[in-house]
Design a protein around this nucleic acid. Structure first.
Lengths: 114, 114
DNA sequence: CTTCAGGTACGATGCAAGTCATACCTGAAG
DNA sequence: CTTCAGGTATGACTTGCATCGTACCTGAAG
């Protein structure tokens, strides 16, 4: 089961305004910081971020990140996978992920948070 | 006639969240895009940005940019100067101004908009 | 003094967005 | 089938924020 990607903007259509608005929220930024810190770009589950908010609100936040073009959401039916669109972001906004990576608790990192 | 700088956060105290929130607004981002495009970092007047909003709202926006640590506001009494904190931003968030510069209408530029 | 332009302070308003409650859907396990 | 966990849809609530109206301040010019 490879799942199916939920729709997001094309790489060339990424809008800096939408990206900044998405990253303006603390919870969404913490998600992006974790994703940027994992240079292996492993697919993550929604619960692996331990966000202190209800699941409905989490659904909302992941939707905003997807519509900004920052992540892919892979629909498995009763589960969902999150994957960073690293290549697209680097091509359109080079250096942005480095900024987020620098905000990672342990500073720059090449390994997943565990 | 040197004017007096209105207070803003120290260079090391710049917060990425506050920066993203500041850049989430279209008007504030257009100001920052213009400032980033002028590599000469000339001091600008508030009216030189031609923002299509009232002066009270402009005061609000410049205040947000200053409190985020992105600009200095020099108080001349009945006038105000705006200057980009390029060095501080580059040190704390390297690459951020390049992202904004790339959003400049004519693409990358080394000269003021005129 | 008065006049005027640039800027600020305060308050009110309207809208966008973050949050959650309820209800429902999906797939896996018994 | 039932049960359960993960996720979504809808609606309502609340907060934040962009905006402007009114009033006031500041400095320059007359």
């Amino acid at each position: 089961m490879t799942g199916r990607n939920l729709v997001g903007p094309e790489a060339d259509a990424l809008d800096l305004g939408a990206v900044f608005r998405a990253l303006a929220d603390e919870h969404r930024r913490s998600v992006m910081t974790e994703l940027a810190a994992d240079h292996g770009d492993a697919e993550r589950g929604c619960n692996s971020f331990a966000l202190p908010i209800s699941k409905q609100t989490q659904t909302h936040h992941f939707r905003v990140l997807r519509e900004a073009g920052l992540i892919d959401e892979i629909d498995y039916g009763n589960r969902k996978g999150i994957r960073l669109r690293r290549a697209d972001i680097e091509r359109r906004f080079p250096g942005l992920l480095t900024l987020l990576d620098a905000e990672s608790p342990g500073g720059h990192s090449s390994s997943p948070p565990g």
